[in-house]
């Protein structure tokens, strides 16, 4: 994606961003407008970062596992992360830092469980990782439900956590933490972009990568660790948001984007735009906000079907 195409895409993106922040703003009285804009900008930043992270992490996972149907949701990472987050919010009421540490720990755990499950299933590797990811996801989703019942959480909380919602309440006391998380996301993202050449070679063939001088195992686990960190951070804020990491990279591939660097940077723009539109729909289509996962799955199921059809013949 170069030059003109990128320009058109960016224009659309900025237009979407403008609509997102400006929508029905004139309905509000002048003196509260600033407050509303502030709230929307915080939400906008969360939406954009989540879109970028969830999509690029999907793209990277698809390269690492050589399976176009993977993202953090399918692999069970988000399920684990959500469980860790809720677990910590039960025991350490509301401490964001501890919650995110728990979320990261359980994301890692779920990824490990998922991987060890899949290595024990004697089937096509593409299928086995999907099945084990699904099992881990079900396991942690159930645990989330049980934990919520035990901790007497209201049912709407579950409704939004399991399907994802960007309606996060930012607390000004935590502003410094938010900024530091944002910085770590930026840094790790830059790191992954720098790792795109290793990802490229690893996606060709692991033996070739190895003899070309890439430490395949080290790179695999290190990149996976970073993806898990990013995902667990996002899950702590928005809950489980799936599918966006599958569709955008696959659409990009269909459009002829093949190199990891282009795929990842394209995912940033595509993921951010898609999530922005989806959140807009989820925010305004009904009298109350519907979870973003509902909108996204309706969007993406035809695509998922198409991808499965093309990959499991």
């Amino acid at each position: 994606m170069k030059g003109k195409k990128l320009l058109i895409f960016l224009t659309i993106f900025f237009l979407l961003s403008f609509i997102y922040i400006d929508f029905k703003l004139s309905n509000f009285e002048k003196d509260v407008r600033n407050e509303i804009i502030k709230m929307r900008i915080f939400r906008y930043i969360l939406v954009i970062t989540s879109g970028m992270v969830l999509t690029s992490s999907g793209a990277v996972m698809q390269i690492l596992f050589k399976n176009p149907l993977l993202d953090s949701y399918v692999l069970g990472i988000s399920g684990g992360g959500l469980f860790g987050f809720i677990l910590s919010s039960v025991y350490f009421k509301g401490n964001l830092l501890i919650s995110i540490f728990f979320s990261f720990f359980f994301s890692l755990l779920s990824a490990l469980i998922s991987l060890s499950f899949s290595s024990n299933i004697k089937s096509d590797r593409k299928v086995s990782i999907l099945i084990s990811g699904l099992l881990v996801n079900i396991l942690f989703s159930s645990l989330v439900i049980i934990l919520s019942i035990f901790s007497k959480r209201d049912i709407t909380f579950l409704f939004y956590a399991l399907m994802g919602s960007f309606n996060h309440i930012f607390i000004s006391k935590n502003l410094f933490l938010y900024i530091s998380f944002f910085v770590t996301i930026i840094l790790t993202t830059v790191f992954i972009i720098f790792k795109s050449k290793e990802l490229d070679i690893m996606s060709i063939d692991e033996d070739i990568a190895s003899t070309s001088g890439v430490n395949v195992k080290k790179n695999f686990f290190f990149i996976l660790l970073i993806i898990i960190y990013q995902t667990s951070l996002i899950v702590s804020f928005v809950g489980m948001v799936g599918f966006v990491g599958i569709i955008i990279p696959n659409i990009l591939r269909m459009a002829g984007v093949v190199k990891s660097k282009d795929l990842i940077s394209g995912s940033f723009l595509g993921g951010a735009s898609l999530i922005l539109v989806a959140d807009f729909i989820s925010k305004y289509s009904f009298s109350f906000e519907i979870p973003i996962g509902v909108v996204l799955s309706l969007f993406s199921l035809p695509f998922i079907f198409w991808i499965v059809k093309n990959n499991f013949e």
Binding site: I63, P68, V258
Partner: peptide
């Protein structure tokens, strides 16, 4: 598993 440009394929020889 995924398509790749020939030129880059060769280029990565000198990773």
């Amino acid at each position: 598993h995924y398509d790749f440009p020939v030129y880059d394929f060769i280029k990565y020889g000198r990773y």
